[in-house]
């Protein structure tokens, strides 16, 4: 690093609370069984390699990058489904906004069908829906995008498991060790609580963090409902005093 820090990029990261995240091996989610490391993870204080991270200020996003209703339109029409605005603030554990970071999102269409060669669900594809978008957070850490509410769908885990409506999120932060992928669920959906992938998270309070809240104040009248989903990345120790970057 060469000394050009964005706000909030000083100090080393707080240790990750692994008990808050799902463990690697979660028998209820069968795909994890052969993909879970058995050895203990190697711990060491973050070095510059983990404390620096890619930035995307040079990327000029397209005007429709954050509009899943229109960005894959083949015939000029909108994607089919319940129209939504999803927005939220990316913060760190110190409740400081994380500006200028890339947020990527992907999802099934309104019928619960993904546009992917491995998808086997019988629900119809929507020719005007690709299911991908991205945004860069503003100075206060906010992102937003337009989309349609994704459908629930069955998947081959148990005999008859179904995923609740959800949107996948990838967030960069400013340090490679802040890198995070997660999934957003919808307030009030009873299927959240019967999902084996949701169930990989041990603590109900942690699951609640993944549930976006219906936000009537930010609905677009006669157009779209709004859901708010805030995201928290690992925070950094403050530098009230000179702080060593490595080795803590």
């Amino acid at each position: 690093m060469t000394g050009h820090f964005l706000p909030g990029t000083d100090g080393v990261l707080f240790q990750r609370d692994r008990a808050w995240h799902p463990p690697a091996d979660t028998p209820g989610y069968k795909s994890s069984t052969l993909r879970a490391p058995r050895h203990s993870l190697l711990s060491f204080g973050p070095t510059r390699s983990e404390m620096a991270g890619p930035t995307f200020g040079h990327e000029r996003l397209g005007a429709l990058d954050n509009d899943l209703i229109r960005n894959f339109s083949q015939d000029g029409g909108d994607a089919i489904g319940q129209r939504l605005v999803v927005y939220g603030q990316v913060l760190d554990e110190n409740a400081r906004p994380v500006p200028g970071t890339l947020v990527e999102f992907w999802q099934a269409n309104a019928g619960g069908r993904y546009r992917h060669k491995k998808e086997g669900y019988v629900a119809a594809l929507d020719p005007n829906f690709g299911g991908f978008g991205r945004a860069i957070t503003d100075a206060q850490g906010f992102y937003h995008f337009r989309t349609v509410r994704p459908g629930a769908y069955p998947w081959p885990n148990g005999g008859n498991d179904w995923r609740p409506s959800h949107i996948h999120f990838s967030i960069f932060g400013h340090a490679f060790a802040q890198r995070l992928i997660t999934q957003m669920y919808f307030e009030g959906d009873p299927m959240i609580w019967q999902c084996p992938i949701v169930g990989t998270i041990p603590d109900r309070a942690a699951i609640e963090q993944l549930i976006a809240r219906l936000d009537r104040h930010n609905t677009t009248p006669m157009d779209a409902l709004a859901y708010r989903f805030d995201i928290v990345l690992r925070g950094r120790r403050s530098t009230m005093f000179e702080n060593r970057l490595e080795g803590n």
Partner: peptide
């Protein structure tokens, strides 16, 4: 820290 990190989910 005043907030908890958002928990991870599989990609």
């Amino acid at each position: 820290p005043t907030l908890k990190e958002t928990p991870s989910q599989t990609a």
